[in-house]
Design a protein around this nucleic acid. Sequence first.
DNA 1: TCTGGGGTCCTAGGACCC
DNA 2: TCTGGGGTCCTAGGACCC
Length: 417
Amino acid sequence: MIQKGKKSYPAIMHVDADAFFASCEQALYPEFQNRPVIVGEDRGIAVALSYEAKRAGVTRGMLIQDVKRICPDGIILSGDYETYALFSKKIFSILRRFSNEVEQYSIDEGFVNITGMDKVLNLSYNDIGKHIRGTILKEIGISVSVGIGKTKTLAKLASYLAKPARVVEITEANILESLSGAKIGNVWGIGSSSAHYMNQLGIYTADALYSKNMSFVAKHFTKPHQEIWHEMHGNMVYPICIDEKTQYASISQTRTFGKTFGNKALIYQELISNLEGACRKARKYGLLAGKVTIMLKRQDFSHDVYELRLPRPSSFPAQIAPLLRPLFDGLYEKRAPYRGTGIILSQLQDEKVVQLNLLENESHFNKLEHVYNAVDTLLSRYGKNTISIASSHNAMKKNQQTPQRIMKLPLLVGVCH
DNA sequence: TCTGGGGTCCTAGGACCC
DNA sequence: TCTGGGGTCCTAGGACCC
């Protein structure tokens, strides 16, 4: 049926939780409210901060030891990510009450297409934002910031301007004024490198980019920044993606030592320890890697990488490690010392699909599978540090409170060497 | 924001082929 | 063996995000 009266403008809403992890802790433990809460003890750095902690001078990424010095009365917590995921679920179930078109962009951010809801609810978009913000705050105790605009880019910029705890709508009428409040590097998709480039073109704030004409944009920018310019002008380039992400494209585990050193054997053990962690996650999701990348982080914060295509997809460290060794040797000699290592598994495939193609060597595969099923059971029962293949069982364990027995599996050692 | 960890996507350029 | 031109595939690495 055709509605009479004014037409609805397209409207995208971006909902962004304020200091999400810290807010979850404060919602869960009322005694933490109005106090500086810092999440990240498990990682050694401040991952999330309550506004009280920010006010005390703590910044994101700050080392926990510095946090303790700067903010002695801060409540420092390890991340409880399962609980945060539950809060996240609740936020998104509230959003889905208002619209079918909800994109879960990250654990604490979502886009909602609210086009036409102004007519249905007889409320302005701004009031709808306030209503949703109030609903989330009332039902689960989490404060969110809400941005509204014609595209995802504008909505995201609006929620940035709305932080903390407000609702901002960018309209045709206020767009220049709104965009002048954001530095160019705060635009979604423009990082420090592009911000630097744009500064050299005389573009310092978001409204300056908006004001450039299309021929300027075509001349100086490549596709991603041209798309941002179009989005700023209200032309939707990035659609709302309501499909749930089901599979990983890559799984990685990286770790920094804390200080640099050049002990080759220890660094190799660290690398293999990362391999075990990444493989374990892959097995948990029923995935096999077609490609493995090893990464050595150097002192100057650059890194050396080397990719290896596996002869057959695998998620078993005992199968992969022997192939990695010569690559590591070749890579290592070049530019030690290093400050960390990493493993990236990619070209991930469903293990059920792959197994059908592995009939030639089924018995070996099955043997390894049985072994690692047992490994995974032990790991989930007794904790991460209880078992490892021989090459990594001396690797440094971070935050290891109590000495743990390392169980060596003779079979794995045998396969590996 | 001088640097922790886990991700995704894009692109320039080399290898290879016709 | 050299020379054009053009297409595709792949890799290394950059850039960006939370």
